[in-house]
């Protein structure tokens, strides 16, 4: 069994309610450093809420969060990259405008890497966001996140609603970029089948709490199931 590495993100006794709806209920998680951690769970399991709390966009009702050793405050936002599930880019902006905008906002942003990745992902810098398809927008969102040289990448459903071709393209790029450094990735997804080969650590979130967690290889070995099958079993 693989030894758990030091945590890059620590969450303890985290609770969050939206009105009467409980999104997270006393959740304790340690996300290991230097690993690609998959956050898996059905719709409404609290994945997006958890990631938004880690990124400092939503605040917990109770509990503590330490993202890279401190609260996810304004200063800390320079040290991690967050990719939300939504289309959060200004539709009137051109890709090159957004690259320049990000370069001015984040000291960790690598402009030349962004242009190179834009080219690699078959996108043109002079295109407008409103002219891109959903798959192209998802690719560009990933470009903006991965062009930052940070310790942690928090990616919320980067594969949702994207055609299989774009999905595999994104996963390959993500794996390629991740393999280059010592960074950690937290990725929430429903697409377990396609992406499970990339996962190092897996956290299954359901009914507002952690149902199962561990290293991907250990979980496969212990349960003698693929992660896809294990997901089905846990959330049946």
């Amino acid at each position: 069994m693989k030894e758990t590495r030091e945590a890059i993100v620590e969450v303890s006794n985290l609770s969050k309610k939206y009105g009467l709806t409980v999104a997270l209920d006393g959740v304790d998680i340690k996300f290991p450093q230097g690993e690609l951690t998959a956050l898996i769970g059905p719709n409404g399991s609290g994945k997006t809420t958890l990631l938004k709390i880690l990124a400092g966009l939503t605040y917990p009702d109770q509990g503590r969060v330490k993202t890279i050793d401190r609260a996810p405050d304004r200063i800390n936002k320079e040290r991690f990259a967050f990719l939300p599930e939504n289309d959060y880019l200004y539709s009137w902006m051109k890709l090159e405008y957004l690259i320049e905008f990000f370069a001015r906002q984040y000291t960790s942003f690598d402009r030349s890497k962004a242009y190179q990745m834009t080219k690699d992902m078959n996108l043109k810098p002079e295109q407008k966001i409103s002219d891109l398809s959903k798959g192209m927008r998802a690719r560009f969102k990933l470009v903006l996140s991965l062009s930052r040289d940070v310790l942690l990448y928090i990616l919320d459903e980067p594969l949702a609603g994207i055609d299989p071709q774009s999905r595999s393209y994104i996963l390959e790029n993500l794996n390629l970029e991740f393999a280059r450094g010592e960074s950690s990735v937290i990725l929430s997804t429903h697409e377990v089948l396609e992406s499970e080969k990339f996962f190092d650590y897996v956290i299954m979130l359901g009914d507002d709490r952690v149902q199962l967690e561990g290293y991907a290889d250990d979980l496969r070995r212990e349960h003698d199931l693929s992660l896809q099958e294990l997901t089905r079993e846990v959330f049946a």
Binding site: R74, I75, K77, E78, P84, Y88, Y90, Y106
Partner: peptide
Amino acid sequence: REKTIFLLKSLPRS
């Protein structure tokens, strides 16, 4: 409304 608040609040700006 346009969800761009995600971008704005993700920036390391006060």
